[in-house]
Design a protein around this nucleic acid. Sequence first.
RNA 1: CGGAGUAUAGCUCAGCCUGGUAGAGCACAGCCUUCGGGAGGCUGGGGUCGGAGGUUCAAAUCCUCUUACUCCGACCA
Length: 429
Amino acid sequence: MLFSNFFAPTSKDVPANAEIASHVLMLRSGMISQTASGIYCWLPLAVRVMEKIEKIICEEQDRIGAQKVYFTTVQPVSLWIESGRYDSYGKEMLRLKDRKDNDFLYSPTNEEQATDVFRKYVKSYRGLPVMFYQIHWKFRDEIRPRFGVMRGREFLMKDGYSFDIDFAGAKKTYDAVFRSYVRTFRRLGLTPIPVQADSGAMGGNMSHEFQILAATGESTLYYDKKLLTTSDDELMTIFAATDEKFDHKTCQVSEKDLMSSKGIEVGHIFYFGTKYSKSMGAFVLNKNGEKIYPEMGSYGIGVSRLVAAIIESSHDDRGIIWPESVAPFDLTLLNLHPRDDRCTIAAEKIYETFCGHQEVLYDNRDVSVGEKLADADLMGMPWQIIIGSSNIGDGLVELKNRKTKEIVKMSLENVIGKFMSKCYCPQNC
RNA sequence: CGGAGUAUAGCUCAGCCUGGUAGAGCACAGCCUUCGGGAGGCUGGGGUCGGAGGUUCAAAUCCUCUUACUCCGACCA
């Protein structure tokens, strides 16, 4: 992709409305454009990141047998009256009317619709267990939207719903989702901290939040430092709590092992038994022909929030530092002196060779060197290949690692060889 | 919903106190010179001063009302 053709309106000005790093950087790098309070357009740079996050989430959901669907964003209120949540959800629910004056709402979550689909088609224990998931837009009319997309009103969320025949099955599903979430967040370059949580509006009695560590997080976390080094299977048994639930007096973890940090909630899982299956009459017949109500759980990952959370946990004073797994491009190719034929020939050779193998953002704009270097750092691709007049005479280009800031000079052939053989290490390990 | 603030060009802001009919930098368009950390010169385009009402010969500026946005608190992926 040519930088000059790519719609990424970057800016060096710090936006007046933004306070936290991720919001400032998302605006400055041209990822988002605000339309109203807590409502944002997502521009191409952000969409590329979001799609990579979605792909990883989908792979991990598929791995545990969850099946992708799309529920509807606009729903009749009757479903919510059945579950009893139409009144209890309150003003956070955006209510709408159609032309016939029927009452609808823009879905903030989908327990009701998942249960409705289930009850229409599953009548036998043989249909269990089953788990749906989707990645779709939600709207919650937050009292106070803030921090850019971190607490937006419209947001992209992966939400999943499971149906099991009994508690043992539901617990097994819950644990599978738990492990799947840990794996998902790690693949996104994050360190997840699972903490026991209240189940809030979802109802139920078993719940975990997944927090990631970031200085600007909204929650304060206390956790056993073992949590940072443990295997996935042990994670659920290690202590972690948010400040609302933490009590120094009853905490079992010794003072020297207890860590405290700010965190951002990026996922939340709930087991809530038969709350919705009973209220909405979703039952199946067991082997004896008796009615049983499935044990349910629901599982959420804030996809659009993750984009901001990743930036919060990975940036520096010059811009974003994308983890390789979600970077919008694998590398930025900077032709510092596009009027120097030697530079342009070298840059285009790399660009053409990488086509189909690497996702390259090629900056051959006729702007100042400083602007190109600043934009490359701001937009934060893991690697930069920098071609300029001062080195190309010796047949050399520079390979810069965005995270370590290490710059290595190497020949054109070597830099092509490294990326084409998928070894990005400057030491050619 | 309580508290605090902001609203003037695409962006960041000045002008307001002390009314006299709108500015800078960046961005944008053209030409030229440049080029290793957001370049320089010349020229040009761009604003119902958030909205409504009021005071006044005259309102971006003073008064009243209103809307939007941001921040702090209670709620949440």
